[in-house]
Simulated assay, not measured.
Amino acid sequence: MGSASKPSTKAQANKPSGKQAGLDRRARIAELRAAEQRRDRRNKIIAGSVAGVLVIAAIATGTWIVVDANKDKKAKEAAASAPIDGVQTFGDLGRTHVKEKVTYPQTPPVGGDHNAMWLDCMGRVYDQPVENERAVHSLEHGAVWVTYNGKATPEDIKALSDKVKATPYSLMSPYPDEKGTITLSAWSTQLVVEKADDPRVNQFFTKYVQGKQTQEPGASCSMGAM
């Protein structure tokens, strides 16, 4: 029988020794660790840069928020001080609490002696006429009272209702006897318009809801007569 074949000298030469294999493995591990450390340092640099950008952005944003808030405040103050075309004012009016009915010179009334109990006016929409004497008390507390007669369209009534419901210190009710289609009343102040989309409606709300005409600033507009 023939003799067993021997491994080639070339294969033996290419096969690393145990010692060399161990060195190669440690070198590979060291290389991987170095690469991982480089990657960590790079990620930290990127994270730091992003954080710095975010801080700068936050500071810038905060600055702009303050500026915008100041601009908004100034715009509201300007709107509150600007005259509104067609607004009538009626001077000093009585403020005595009475139990009897009062004959008012304005229709709807804008102030004067009134009932001791005000109407709920935290965005309250009434579908029936309300008592003058209690509505006037609400005006004393800084409310705007929106009234309308039979000439107001359903669309106008809906738009005004939505406006009132979204506005604390306001109330709304029908007022069949008023001459104007839509009347906006605050204490000693009144405006008549024909349509709900008249820009003066928003101007009136801005200026007179808890405006300077308010006789009892901070007084409640809830817990009154329902």
Rank of each mutant, 00 (worst) to 15 (best):
M172S: 04
L160P: 06
P176N: 05
D156S: 01
D156F: 00
S173R: 11
V164L: 07
Y175G: 09
G180M: 00
D156M: 01
P176L: 02
P174V: 07
L184V: 03
A186Y: 00
S161T: 14
S185F: 03
K163A: 06
A186C: 01
M172C: 06
P168L: 10
Y169N: 15
E194Q: 12
A186R: 01
K165E: 07
V192A: 13
D156K: 02
T181C: 03
E178Q: 15
P176C: 03
T167S: 14
L160S: 05
T189S: 10
D162V: 04
Y175D: 14
T167I: 07
S161C: 08
K158M: 06
L184Y: 00
S170R: 01
K179L: 14
S173C: 12
A166T: 00
M172L: 07
E194V: 07
G180N: 01
P176Y: 01
S173A: 15
S173Y: 12
A186F: 00
A166F: 02
S188D: 10
V193L: 02
S188Q: 10
S185M: 04
P176H: 03
I157K: 12
V193N: 02
A166Q: 07
D156L: 00
L171A: 10
Y169K: 15
L191S: 02
I157H: 03
V192N: 14
L171K: 11
W187R: 05
S170F: 10
K165I: 01
E194W: 03
V193I: 05
S170W: 09
K163V: 05
P176W: 03
L191D: 03
P174L: 04
G180A: 06
